[in-house]
Design a protein around this nucleic acid. Structure first.
Lengths: 242, 242
DNA sequence: CGCTAGGTTGAACTAGTTCAATAAGTGTGG
DNA sequence: CCACACTTATTGAACTAGTTCAACCTAGCG
């Protein structure tokens, strides 16, 4: 399904200080977790990494199944999701480029990992990566800091899910995506209304109605289906905070 | 407010292999994060730890304020909580004995930490602990594993908050507490109805009604206000899963 | 014994869901 | 380039789970 050439092959000629071939071309080499490694660590890690592509909609890891891979997202966007016994879905996280993917030090994946857009990843076998992380304290440390930030984010989202109204939730999502994209006032969302609902714990219809309410209030504009223009950022933020 | 004697004072007479005085008496010494340290590491860590008591209702760390302390919970129970702009509360985590408390590697606390019952803690200055964790890989590693588990837990809770009905939420909470307490079929909850509501994203009334519905269905019994007897564990679990 | 805080129950209300119809994009082949 | 099907989004109307507000219990305690 997804396969590609080994990334490894440390620098040709054995010059220990050269960047591994594929890492040199890595779009997130300054921001992914590997950026804490020195040249030799990078070479060692890249030896068992491989680059893969994941078409939109395809699932990399299934909830409850054995979690055999971890890695970095290079481009595109992924979702992390869980299901209730009877199939209701909740998205529990969005993965952006340079974010770490997977569950080190645990046999089974606590949630599914699925591509929202076409995506490219740099993946490692979990057990090999676990071993590597234990030998290279810098990676363990970086992983810890990232995990702590993810935990903060997840808990912050719990406030949204537990206590905010539909409009507040939609406003929060727009703010969050705008902050992450960190571009102009117009954002391109990689999410369908259904997916927005799955993130916010709402139905499609409620998401749609909330968007039109925000639009009617002049806080945002909807130039196209997957595009949102923020007209009154402060007001939007105020609504989002509850 | 809360103060006590220094914990430290490595073993009297300088026998390097002796357990630090207060660690020997520590109720969670085999399960708290320090259990990954060897004698000398433990001695070094205990040198800047202090034991404190926190009466029920008192707050150790405030959301958004500087997070000066980290530590372990020795006895009692704490809650982690956040507020919306207009004061609605959401509990984002429950801390049990031997759990780690606080936010290493971050200046500000992402949520408040408050005692649900009278509690005793073993606390450290955050910056000193951060430094210690960076020097002792085992602690960093253990912290990482705990944080990953907490993250899994938080994300699992997001499913509850986003997609489950009131009854399913209440059932889930009972199951969760029963699993943690890991005792018989009767559990003692350290939570008021209000606090249950704040955990589940519900009002007191809805919590109460859900409990009586579960009681009427014969799934649980309520021998006293703060006590729940599980009558049909399987059915309870089935309801909790959704 | 009566007071108070915490808990339950009831009745009215409302935010959000559900179900159904309509509209707007998107893509394909003639 | 348009007609067609098809998916995705919006809107409307009926419904329902959960909230809100208020009254009423119950247990603990001076």
């Amino acid at each position: 399904m997804y396969r590609d050439a080994h990334v490894g092959e440390t620098a040709v000629g054995g010059a220990a200080l050269a960047l591994p071939a594929s890492c040199a071309a890595c779009p997130v080499r300054d921001s992914a977790i590997c950026c804490v490694l020195d040249r030799s660590g990078l070479a060692a890690l890249s030896r068992f990494g491989r680059r893969i592509t994941l078409p939109a909609g395809q699932t990399l890891l299934w909830e409850g199944e054995e979690a055999i891979t971890v890695g970095n997202l290079l481009s595109g966007m992924l979702k992390l999701s869980t299901l209730t016994g009877d199939g209701r879905e909740q998205i529990v996280g969005i993965v952006h480029p340079s974010d770490f993917i997977g569950r080190p030090f645990g046999r089974n994946s606590p949630h599914s990992v699925t591509a929202l857009t076409d995506a490219t990843l740099c993946v490692f076998g979990r057990t090999a990566f676990d071993r590597f992380a234990q030998e290279h304290a810098a990676i363990g440390q970086a992983l810890l800091e990232r995990t702590l930030i993810e935990l903060d984010r997840a808990r912050h989202w719990m406030l949204l899910l537990g206590r905010k109204s539909a409009c507040e939730r939609v406003a929060s999502l727009i703010v969050e995506i705008a902050d992450r994209a960190d571009g102009g006032p117009t954002i391109d969302l990689p999410l369908s209304r259904q997916q927005m609902g799955d993130i916010l714990g709402l139905t499609i219809e409620t998401v749609s109605r909330s968007l039109t309410r925000l639009k009617r209030a002049g806080v945002i504009a909807l130039p196209s289906l997957r595009r949102i223009a923020i007209r009154k950022p402060d007001e939007l933020r105020a609504i989002a905070e509850g």
